[in-house]
Structures are given as structure tokens and as C-alpha cells.
Design a protein around this nucleic acid. Structure first.
Lengths: 339, 339
DNA sequence: AATCATTCCGAAAACGTTTTAGATATGAAT
DNA sequence: ATTCATATCTAAAACGTTTTCGGAATGATT
């Protein structure tokens, strides 16, 4: 089944390809009669311009690339949803790539998208990404770039993020205001900025309320998993039997804490309060339901695409685009694991 | 920043574009000397063939389209993961589209992918899809097509599915064997085949064990949501206070049942056993943990891509591809909501 | 010296589109 | 009759590749 081309239409109508093209694009130097003839035939044959040919000529693919660290993940799945939907609304399609939190994969995938000549790229960094040279490549090639959530400050580009510091600060403060004093923090690996910012927020909340910060109250979850949460809770309770709260880098880790407490008859929130992060679906369904920080993934996706499309636009019209930084509000959801 | 082209290399080396192309593709009618020169320069300039030009010439985009009904969903997120990964391994990129369970959107998206001239399409139908004319369009245009999970038997194409009947049969039988007799089924909407098959499996398990089937024991969840699960449980208990088990179309609905039971001090599994479907992350984390049917999304994605790429291959070499139907095994996971 | 094979190269066509820069014809104004 | 404006069309180039075909040069064989 051959696709219909301008050439075929031209042959049938015994006119030139040029005229056919112009007729369809409503050029004024085509007679109304030919225009009508061309359009009728085009409609009848269901002519659709070949996007590859258009790409070659216009030097644009109408495709944007999206690189995320994970996909089986409430937050990132929401991001995909927002991105794909909003891109579609603007006539763009989205190629999604999953770095699986691997620096090496992420590098390859950036190269893949660049080679594919996508019109713009959306990136959220892998947890293990330390160098950002591959990201600067995107900028160097003058491909529009927007980073979201897991960003790097070394890269000059528009960003869509939440204020991780603020969110962590508020979450920690809520714990303090509810009476907790010995608050453990299960932090993420040292690479990601989100992880560091949340850690800082935790420390600053303590400072504000004149609660001494103990480095020994902080544990690092390498895999950011349920298992990590479980094991670190065990360790933390061994080190400090009198702790009264845990603030976690993410709900998954918090779920591990939750599980440990349940298995060991530690009452939540009476003995230990827990706050997670991201508002995974699971957090609402656990019992007692997990307090957490709501992180608007869907909206983040939409905003990121809009920023990107804006940049693509200003690149086309040769304007200089102004770098923007959108900080989306978060909300601490106090559910049943906090007092 | 201009991308490097064959022409540029040719000009620098003062040879023809043809020779450059041939040198890079190791044609034998290029002298070793020129070959070396071309290759060195190409490497130095980091030449990468323009994929759009290649697409135009080869009539292939190296892109496959994926249409799924939802994305913020453990099963479908796993599918994406499998699809994207396996496609990447075979040199294909994936454009993902989300129908949001809407027939209209799905139609548009099929047209979008067809217009974009993707090399193949992977579809899981929207819940509201009744007519499959848009899907037959794919076949009519001779674009390779593989359907997975939510398929339609009206379409002649390769398929990757689980045996929903079998899975539901086993799940129901496990309930029966554990002593349950008054088993409610919270089914999905009537459109999707998966939904109907699970219903049949439920009925046939009852029949095998000579338990009379009561239509009044079956409730339809329109939105397949937690809320539906909650409300339908309330209704079911009002209608039949003596029920001892619930088999649900999916874990989300089961989570609603779970919640209702918890709120009303109904003991699981002592008073009511529950089995869900799909093995969402939440099922493992609820307490008591939810028994469910494990549905291998990741593997399904991988298998579907492989089937598709196989078809793309046989289309290119003009062979007729044989339609395949892969039925992936499922496993009933008996956790804490069953005896 | 003529023929042949071999080696190396490049022109041209093709993929499907858009746009620039003419070409041709008609009629009107000088 | 010449010039000019207008209307309608098309050839050609361009985007970046690949491949077919033929040409030119070289050296070997008759």
C-alpha cells in the first residue's frame, strides 16, 4: 500500500508538483479552478504530507525527547502523562527513554536523541549521574533543553522543579510542631540535588527550632527502596532506641519504615511518626496511611513541555530565549503516621 | 551549530559525496587511502548520518508507536519499561501515546502514528473502544501491528496476552478451596475482553465446584477505582450480609474493598477474603497484604516488541509473517487477604 | 598496438516536500 | 506597436542520504 504523494496527484491532474504543493498551501498564484481540483483529489485520496520529507526540508522533526530515571514510579508516570498530553496538544510527539538511574545509559540516550535530531529534550537526571558533560552537549548543539525535578545547577537551562528544601523544611517542622524531638532522616544518595536539598531542609528546620543536629541521626538509603527503609530503621533503632520520628527521602523508603514498625508492634504515630515524600499511591492506602509531601508530577510535565516548546519557538525565530525557572508548590499531607 | 554532513566532508577532502558515503559504508571500490582519510575526518568531526534523510531514502523511521489506555498504573508503566528498553536494544525508538481510555483519543492517535509513518504499532485498547475500524486501518495500510493485553478478536494480528480466563478461574478456585462459598465478583465494564474473560473464569470456577452462580453476586465497577471498590462493597454487604469473599477486576478496586473492611472492622481474611488482579505495588504494602494475580507487564512489553520487530523484518524482506499469539503465564499470589 | 581486466572515482537519480526565480500568455495602457 | 502589469504556471534547487551506472586511468595480456 503506497502512500499518496504530491507527484501522484500531479500526474493524475497533468500539472506540476509545484502547483499541487502551492494549491494545497493556498498560494495566490494558483487559479481557483486548479486549486479546487487539487484539493478535491487530495481529499479523495486522503493525501497526508510525508513528515519525513517535511522534516528534512524544514529541519525539524516535531518530536521531543524525554529522559527519565524510572517509569514504574507514581511521580514519573505522572510526568510522562503530562508531557505526552501537552506535547500532543502542540503538535509534538514524544520519544521516551528510561535511564534506569544509570549514568552510562543516560549518556547513551542523550546521544541517541541528539542523533535523531529531536526538536528539544526534557531531562530528569539519573541518581548516579555525576558529570554533566553529556547534558552540556545538548546546549552546545543548540538543542532546546529543559530540566525538571532532578536537575543540575551546572547546566544553564530552563527548569521546572519543586522547592525540595522548602518541602523538607515544612515536613520536618510539622514533625517538630507535633512534638517530635528526635527526628531521624533517611536521606538519599549524595549525588542528586533533590536529595541534598531535602537534607538541608531537614537540618534547617531543626536549627530554626533549636534542636541540635546529630549527624548520627542521618542514614543514607543507597537504593531508595522498601528494603533500605526496613533495614535502616532497624539500624536506627539499635543506635538510638528513643527516636520519635522519621523523615524519609521518598514514600518507598517510608514504606519500609512503616513495615518495620508494623512488624515490631511500634505504634504509628504514637511511638514513631513518619513522613515520606512524593505522595505515591501506596501512601494513601497503607494503614495507618502515610503522611507525605505531595509532588505535582502531572503539572510538572505540562509546564516543562510548555517551556520547551517556547524555547523551540524562539530558536526558530532566532530570538534569544530567556531562561526560566518554575518552582511548583508542594503540600505536606498530614495523614495517619503523624500526630 | 550546523550538523556535519557528507557534503562538508566531501568538500574538505575535495572528493565527491558519493565517495564519502561509500568510504563510510566500506564499499570495495574506494581505495584504502581515501577510505582512511574519510574515516578519520568523519570521526574527528563526529559525523552522524542524518536519520531524517535516511528515513526518506529507506522508507523507514526506526520509530515504533505505542498506544496504551493509562500510564499512571503499575501494569502499564511496566509495559512501557519493557517496550522502550527492548526497542532500544533493537535500534528502535518509541513514541508513546496515552488514550486515557477514550475511544475518540485512540482513533486520533492511531491516525497520528500512521501519518508519522512509524515502522510499527503496539496497541492496548481503551476501555471505551467498541469499534475497531481505526485498528483495521493499520492493517490495511500494511503497517505491522501487535496488540497486547486489551485486544480485540476482530483484528487479525499478533497478540501478547495473559489468559485472563485461566487467571480468574484459578483465583476463584483458590478462594473456593480455602473454604469460601459466597464469592462476590466486582467486575469491570462490559467492553474490554479482559474484563469479560475474567468474569467467565469466575463463573466457570464456581461451576466446576458446583457452587450456584448468582447474578446478584456480581457488581460492575464502572471506573475501576478505589472509590468503586469501596461503594460496591458497601452495596454488596447490604444485599448479601453473609458473603465470605470478593474477587476483583483489579487491585485498585480490591484496595477499595480492603479499605471498607478496615473501616468497618471486618476481618480479612477471617470474615472476608479478597483477591485482586495485576499485582500492583500497593497490594504488597497494604496490611493485611492483598492476594492478587501477578501479571507480567515488563515481559509482556518485551515480547510484544519482539513480535513487532519480527513482523517489520518480514515485511521488509517481503515474506509473509505468521501471526503469533503469545499467552504469558500468570500466578495467583496468596498473601494475607486469603486463607 | 590493440584488447581486456582491474581499480578508483563521480554524476545522476531517487526518496517527498517547499520555495525561489523565472517563463509564458493575456490584456491594458501608452 | 511597444511597454507594463497581472495571472498562472513550472523548472530547479535544496534538505542529506544511498546506489546504480558509467567513465577514466592503469597495468597486463595478446
Amino acid at each position: 500500500m503506497q502512500e499518496v504523494t504530491l507527484k501522484q496527484i500531479a500526474e493524475i491532474l497533468q500539472i506540476s508538483v509545484t502547483t499541487v504543493s502551492k494549491a494545497l498551501k493556498d498560494y495566490k498564484d494558483v487559479s481557483p479552478k486548479t486549486k479546487a481540483a487539487v484539493r478535491n483529489l487530495a481529499a479523495k485520496l486522503n493525501y497526508k504530507p510525508n513528515p519525513t520529507a517535511l522534516s528534512l526540508r524544514n529541519r525539524e522533526t516535531k518530536i521531543i525527547g524525554l529522559i527519565i530515571p524510572e517509569v514504574v514510579h507514581h511521580f514519573f508516570a505522572s510526568i510522562i502523562h503530562g508531557v505526552v498530553l501537552e506535547a500532543e496538544n502542540h503538535g509534538y510527539l514524544v520519544i521516551t527513554l528510561i535511564s534506569n538511574d544509570s549514568y552510562e545509559l543516560e549518556k547513551q540516550q542523550v546521544a541517541l536523541l541528539l542523533d535523531k535530531r529531536v526538536d528539544g529534550i526534557l531531562v530528569s537526571l539519573a541518581g548516579s549521574t555525576v558529570h554533566t558533560h553529556h547534558i552540556s552537549q545538548i546546549i552546545k548543539k543548540e538543542v532546546p533543553l529543559v530540566m525538571f525535578d532532578k536537575i543540575s545547577d551546572e547546566i544553564r537551562c530552563s527548569q521546572v522543579i519543586i522547592d525540595d528544601w522548602q518541602a523538607a523544611f515544612e515536613a520536618t517542622e510539622k514533625l517538630i510542631l507535633s512534638g517530635c524531638r528526635k527526628i531521624i532522616h533517611l536521606k538519599g544518595p549524595d549525588g542528586p540535588k533533590t536529595s541534598l536539598d531535602r537534607f538541608e531542609g531537614y537540618k534547617d528546620a531543626l536549627k530554626k527550632h533549636r534542636i541540635p543536629f546529630h549527624p548520627s541521626y542521618v542514614y543514607t538509603s543507597k537504593n531508595v527502596s522498601i528494603e533500605d527503609g526496613y533495614k535502616l530503621t532497624e539500624q536506627a533503632l539499635k543506635d538510638h532506641p528513643d527516636i520519635d520520628a522519621v523523615f524519609c527521602i521518598t514514600d518507598l523508603v517510608a514504606a519500609g519504615v512503616h513495615k518495620y514498625c508494623k512488624n515490631h508492634q511500634i505504634k504509628m504515630p504514637e511511638q514513631i511518626s513518619i513522613i515520606g515524600f512524593s505522595n505515591w499511591l501506596i501512601s494513601e492506602l497503607m494503614s495507618p496511611s502515610l503522611s507525605t509531601v505531595d509532588q505535582p508530577g502531572y503539572e510538572m510535565g505540562i509546564r516543562a513541555v510548555n517551556l520547551l516548546i517556547q524555547e523551540i519557538g524562539s530558536k526558530k525565530s532566532d530570538e534569544k530565549s530567556t531562561l526560566q525557572k518554575i518552582v511548583l508548590p508542594t503540600k505536606v499531607l498530614m495523614r495517619e503516621t503523624t500526630r
